[in-house]
Design a protein around this nucleic acid. Structure first.
Lengths: 206, 206
DNA sequence: TCAAAAGTGTTGAAGATACACCCATGG
DNA sequence: CCATGGGTGTATCTTCAACACTTTTGA
């Protein structure tokens, strides 16, 4: 029976420029100084791991009330050179409308397209892989893609989120039929004039 | 930043009498003395959480080389009255052929049908619920049911495993077509004479 | 010959895939 | 009037669900 340090690490996804991006932070301290790592940190005395993930997310990005889900726990004994540290990994999805702390302050945090990541500290590459796989799978049986969009969105925007997550193009008509048939979207009486023809806005029911 | 104790708890499933059962251990120590709990224990200095689960499983049941999968990590601050303990929960599936330590020694361990569990210590009822849900879902997209059977089995036996996990009856013809179509079974040149008409034996490919 | 479990096909419904053109608007 | 993205329907194929009788054996 030993005591060990416990961290949470959060894979924070968002959509930028129609591509799936995630948040990384450049490490200022050893080990892996100068390398990028997932946002995260040690859990506090009186908070659950979920609460720790929520807190880290707020500290690093300023966002709250977003989708957050526990992913997996990584507990290899040598995964952190400083000693025994196990980490509970989380996955967060944040809509692009959010004012991000990281995009406003002169931070060491930056967004990276998932297909163009730098080399990561610790076992964080493995954690990211785990998160991407989970997200892709989840899209098959849930409508979790909404979480990466603002409250009101067009069907084309939703489709491009799905395409960004899956990594392949979808058929427009099939996508629309399927998503509308699921009855999870509420059509609104507003249209967005983004391109030429205005596009109908929808929102997620509940 | 705090240090906390980390345990692994294992939901060990098996099939007994065509029903899904799980292993529980009567606690001899406080807290929850006399209540049943999941097998598990603290992780050691130099083992991964996976290794700890494998070790606990061997210690409590004597089995090795069985299906084992990480489930979820429970990290509420008050989940253990002794102090801050987080637990990484695992799910194990063991075939009924195994000689179980718990069934041979005069142990405080016992099998319980999942639909007839006693009141459990800690948050173990929640962990069990999580395991049952995961197992049910997993059956929809994998053939994990094999893990609860001996190396050679009949299709009727496999069907009854699926029924025990799902909790409802399946159509025999549809089940057989589906499972044979998946090409994960290898038919053998042997038949089991369990009832009247001999039934063909199969084994899981790889 | 009876009881018990093994084994076996077909039909209809629903869901998934593939595919191409017209529309509304701003420049 | 042209360029851009918005919006729409059909035909086919595959997959899933429902359903009942014959076969083999031991007692």
């Amino acid at each position: 029976m030993i005591k060990c340090s416990v961290t949470v690490d959060v894979v924070v996804f968002t959509i930028l420029d129609r591509r799936l991006n995630l948040l990384l932070i450049k490490r200022l301290a050893k080990p892996f100084r100068g390398r990028y790592a997932l946002p995260g940190g040690f859990i506090l005395e009186d908070e659950s791991t979920d609460d720790a993930a929520i807190r880290e997310l707020r500290e690093e990005t300023g966002v709250r009330d977003v989708y957050l889900e526990q992913l997996y726990t990584f507990g290899a004994p040598k995964r952190d050179p400083r000693g025994r540290v196990i980490t509970v990994a989380y996955c967060a999805l944040i809509p692009p409308e959010q004012e991000l702390k990281s995009s406003t302050d002169a931070s060491d945090a930056a967004w990276f397209a998932v297909d163009d990541l730098p080399s990561l500290a610790f076992d964080h590459a493995e954690i990211v892989e785990c998160a991407r796989t989970r997200l892709r799978n989840k899209l098959a049986y849930t409508n979790v893609g909404f979480e990466l969009l603002p409250a009101r969105f067009t069907l084309t925007e939703l489709q491009s989120v799905h395409e960004a997550i899956l990594g392949w193009p979808l058929d427009k008509r099939n996508f629309r039929r399927q998503i509308l048939h699921s009855e999870t979207l509420q059509p609104l009486q507003s249209w967005r004039q983004t391109g030429r023809k205005p596009a109908r806005l929808y929102r997620f029911k509940q």
